[in-house]
Structure formats: C-alpha cells, structure tokens
C-alpha cells in the first residue's frame, strides 16, 4: 500500500505546490500508514528529483521520454493511474494547479475513485475518510466522506505548510503500458509572467476600479515587486481589459488563500470576497470609509490610493533596507 503524489515541474524545477503535496502525503501516511511515492512524468533532471526526498518521498517513480514533454489530457492520467495500480496506492494526491485539476479527474475515473478538488484540510480517518473542501466559491466549506476504495485528492496550493523530512528517495524507472486514444497536440507554451503564479503566491497585491485606468498600475506592480508578491485584480478591471483575465480573483475568477492580500481601490463586493476571504491577513486601502471591504479586513487605511500607495512603497523599501 502507498500514497502516490503527482509532481509538477517546469524547466527542471518542481512547483512549491508539489512539495506541499508531499508534506501533506507524509501527514496522511502517519494517519493511514503507507509509503510516500512521488510520480515524475518527463525529465526534470536527477538533481531536481533528489529534492523530492527532502519533503518525504521514499520512492520516485520516473516515467521518462518524449511522450511527457508536453501535457496530454489522455497520456498523463493513463500513466499516473498505471503508477497508482502498480504501487497499490490507496490515496493519490494531485496538487490543484490548473494542470493538476485538468487531469486528476481522469486518473480518478480510471481507478473508479472519487476525486475531491479544493481540499483545505488533512483527512479525518476516525470514522471513514472525511476531507474538508472549499464550496460555494469560498463562501463555505463542505465536509465530504470519500466512499471509494481509492481516493484522489486535489490539495489547494498554500493550504498546507511545507515540512522538511530529508529522506533518501530511491528513483525507479517506470515504463507505461496503457495504450491511448487520440490526444491534443501542444503547439506552443506562452509565458505571460515569470513571477510566482497567483494561486501559489504567498503575498498578493490586488487593485480594483479605484485605480481609474490601466495607466496607473505602475505603482501596484512596483509595490508587488518590492514585496515579492503576485498581482491580482477585481472582475471589472479584467473585463475592461485593464489587466489580463488570469489576474481576476473572486467567485467567478481565481480563488486564492495567500498569507497576505492587499486590496487597493476594491469595494469588497460579495463575489470578490468569496475568492479571497480565506487569505490569512487582509489589508484594505480605500478612500471610502464605508467600503464593505473594511468589514472583512484585518488592517485598513482610509485614504486615496494615489497618495497612500507611493507612501507605502517607501515604507516597504525602508523596512527592507533595515531588515535585509
């Protein structure tokens, strides 16, 4: 019996959400028993694969070769499901990144397992196998009892903290056996930013219609840059194409749970709050003292963003100079 963790990498580096998933798997293993096995598709390099042991992988199953160079919605799940079968995995953990969400359900279907996405807690195994997941787009949680023999879990990035273990991971080559139907062919991968992605970001600076226009985003980006934060925005801002859709957070956008969310010139509509309310600390900067967002904030400044943000930028620089 084992716990299989799908690992995601690009340019020879594993994502942080992969290490979080390994940490999560170690905690599950201490509840249910089972060896933590990492599934690697493609070729991140030996050095990168050694990193997996640092977060608790006892074994690395490595499926190498050209068929994994690009993502495929049919080949990836077939391989991961085969690995799960080969390892008699009872739990398969797939970080809930965009790619992870895209094929985890297919792994589950192949294993006739339930897939639960949006998981924010460790399972409760006292009586069954119960996990807590986001529901109603951040407005609530649902506790789900997973009834299938094998369970496929999508753990939300940033919801489980990293724990170092330093295990020596044994790397074993895995050759895939399943034959596949037709697949899509990836022709191009377009990077729009080198910054940490929004769902994985620990710090997020977000701005809304209060910024008046896209030409004023310079100070938002500079503040984010100084803090090492990702940038986000409200829906009307991306609808007006001031910012790309990929930055839109909220009930109909991306749900995030960073350690710090700074909302600038955002009123705090119910649909916006839904996607950001699980942030650990929320700071609101708004010129209207009656803005609803202040009721959902930990810290607030009532003031004009065009004055407050440049000042905050100076304070952050000063802090960084003093604290290294």
């Amino acid at each position: 019996m084992s716990i299989l963790v799908y690992t995601e990498h690009s340019s020879g580096v594993f994502r942080k959400s992969t290490f979080e998933a390994l940490s999560y798997a170690c905690a599950v293993s201490s509840l249910t028993g089972g060896k933590v096995v990492a599934a690697v598709l493609g070729d991140p390099g030996a050095e990168a694969m050694n990193m997996l042991g640092k977060y608790g992988a006892e074994k690395v199953l490595h499926a190498s070769g050209d068929s994994y160079k690009n993502f495929s919605s049919t080949v990836y799940p077939a391989t991961v499901a085969d690995m799960a079968k080969a390892e008699s995995a009872k739990v398969v953990i797939i970080p809930a990144t965009f790619t992870g969400k895209g094929f985890a359900p297919r792994v589950a279907a192949r294993l006739k397992a339930a897939y639960v996405d949006g998981i924010v807690s460790l399972p409760d195994t006292a009586n069954g196998f119960k996990v807590r997941k986001n529901a109603f787009s951040g407005k609530a949680f649902a506790d789900v009892n997973v009834l299938s023999d094998v369970k496929v879990l999508g753990v939300v990035p940033n919801s489980y903290k990293l724990e170092e273990k330093s295990v020596a991971a044994e790397v074993v080559t895995f050759s895939q056996s399943s034959s596949e139907g037709k697949s899509e062919t990836v022709t191009e991968t377009v990077k729009s930013t080198d910054k940490v992605s929004l769902p994985e970001a620990e710090l997020v600076v977000s701005a809304g219609r209060g910024m008046k226009g896209p030409e004023n985003w310079g100070m938002i980006e500079e503040l984010a840059e100084q803090l090492g934060a990702a940038t986000a925005c409200s829906k009307p801002v991306s609808d007006a194409h001031w910012r790309p859709h990929s930055e839109h957070v909220g009930q109909t956008g991306i749900s995030i749970s960073p350690n710090l969310y700074i909302a600038i010139g955002i009123s705090g509509a119910i649909q916006h709050l839904a996607g950001v309310s699980s942030s650990k600390t929320i700071v609101v900067i708004n010129k209207d003292a009656e803005a609803p967002f202040f009721k959902a904030a930990d810290y607030g400044i009532v003031g004009d963003a065009f004055e407050v943000v440049p000042r905050l930028l100076e304070s952050v620089k000063k802090y960084k100079a003093a604290n290294g």
């Binding site: 951040g138 299938s148 905050l312």
Partner: peptide, 29 residues
C-alpha cells in the same frame, strides 16, 4: 455513489479591523 457531502460550515468571521492613519504607512508595515 463514490462520495457524499456530510455537512457544511461557513468561514469564521474576522475580528474588528485595525485602522492605520493614511500618513503612517510605516506603522502598517
């Protein structure tokens, strides 16, 4: 049936917001 929802919960509300003066961003940091 492979899974069932047994119950729901709503997120805990936050405490009172701590307001910082607009000219004291050092304090916020």
């Amino acid at each position: 049936t492979l899974s069932e929802i047994i119950s729901y919960d709503t997120p805990k509300g936050r405490g009172q917001v701590t307001l910082v003066e607009a000219d004291n961003t050092d304090k916020l940091v």
